[in-house]
């Protein structure tokens, strides 16, 4: 690891000021992804501004029923929070399915959102990667790509976003609060991450000096009946091949509200708007669920190693919706 300077920020204003003035400075949260990437030489900051001492650790109920989550709330604490467990079980489940207990005790909400892809070519300095080194090429295309994207990929990058939490947040219409020396702004989570296009190294709409300070969840009754289904080779401690975050409300056999998002399939948490459109107002049957999944995946394209993900996503969407339907919570 390269040597670097370290500053522990006493308050948000100092944190964002230092990162905006020091050249090549980065915020340091739990470090579970950043430290790993620095050790691999992928991330090479000159200064780290430790934000873990900032007072962004509250989980508060908002007037009107939403919830505001401080960006430095650790994943484990968020997953165990009674409010989240009862009102947004999909978020609890997504968090609990990610990484290991040790990592969840340290990883922050903000850091989780901006964690970087697990594409092996991105990690490997001897391989070509447009994300790591713009213009270098992509060794994953034509290489080993079983874990790669089937939606929204480009000829420059086929990496996926590895977060589980973000998939749940995408389904829940979360809003992200950002702070910089220029002030505060709010960005819908769905607009936070970018598809690779020609600039896969630009992964979010955050500027380099913007700090995620909070995530807000709206009041969302449908979320009480929600589930996160993560599919992977190993039973635990593995990234998703495909995951589905779903919330469903059914009255008299008809879908009255639904939220659906996919993980493991794209460079961002993938909100399944197309599928939702098919589902809303339709009968809650397996046939409709299949139709909805097909509508969403119509645009999916696979490579030799990862084409299976399209069928896997289709089946997982249907199975997750079925589960919500049959366990009675959606009714």
């Amino acid at each position: 690891m390269r040597p670097f300077g370290y500053v522990s920020a006493p308050d948000v204003a100092t944190a964002v000021r230092v990162v905006s003035t020091e050249p090549n400075a980065k915020f340091l949260g739990g470090g579970t992804n950043l430290v790993d990437l620095m050790r691999e030489g992928v991330e090479r900051p000159d200064t780290l501004v430790d934000v873990t001492g900032l007072p962004l650790t509250a989980i508060e109920e908002l007037p009107g029923g939403g919830v505001r989550i401080g960006a430095l709330v650790r994943n484990a604490r968020l997953a165990a929070d009674p409010l989240i467990r009862s009102r947004y079980p999909v978020l609890s489940r997504a968090l609990l399915s990610g990484a290991s207990a040790q990592l969840r005790n340290v990883a922050t909400v903000g850091g989780n959102l901006v964690q970087r892809t697990r594409c092996p070519y991105f990690y490997d300095h001897a391989s070509a990667c447009n994300k790591r080194e713009p213009g270098a090429g992509c060794d994953a295309i034509g290489g080993v790509n079983r874990n790669h994207a089937v939606l929204g990929a480009s000829e420059h990058c086929i990496a996926t976003h590895p977060s589980d939490m973000a998939v749940a947040l995408a389904a829940l219409d979360a809003v992200v609060e950002l702070e910089s020396v220029r002030g505060t702004r709010r960005v819908p989570l769905l607009d936070l991450h970018r598809l690779p296009g020609e600039t896969p190294h630009v992964e979010t709409v955050l500027t380099a000096d913007e700090l995620i300070t909070a995530v807000e969840l709206p009041h969302l009754p449908v979320a009480a009946a929600s589930h996160y289904r993560k599919v992977r080779d190993r039973a635990s401690y593995a990234f998703a091949l495909v995951s589905v975050a779903a919330a469903l409300h059914v009255r008299e056999g008809v879908v009255t509200d639904v939220r659906l998002a996919l993980g493991g399939v794209a460079a961002k948490p993938w909100r399944a708007h197309q599928a939702e459109r098919v589902l809303l107002g339709a009968e809650a049957t397996e046939e409709v669920f299949l139709r909805a999944a097909d509508a969403e995946l119509a645009a999916a394209t696979g490579l030799p190693d990862n084409t299976f993900k399209i069928e896997l996503a289709r089946r997982t969407i249907v199975a997750t919706l079925q589960e919500l339907l049959t366990d009675g919570s959606a009714a």
């Binding site: 370290y6 340091l28 470090g31 579970t32 430290v35 790993d36 050790r39 780290l48 990484a99 290991s100 207990a101 040790q102 990592l103 005790n105 340290v106």
Partner: peptide
């Protein structure tokens, strides 16, 4: 040294963490 095995687990204020990814 990558947070992928847990052999480095220690307790910090009673909570378990991977000490390899902790500065």
């Amino acid at each position: 040294d990558q947070g992928a095995c847990g052999a480095c687990t220690v307790l910090v204020d009673g909570e378990r963490i991977n000490s390899c990814l902790a500065l």
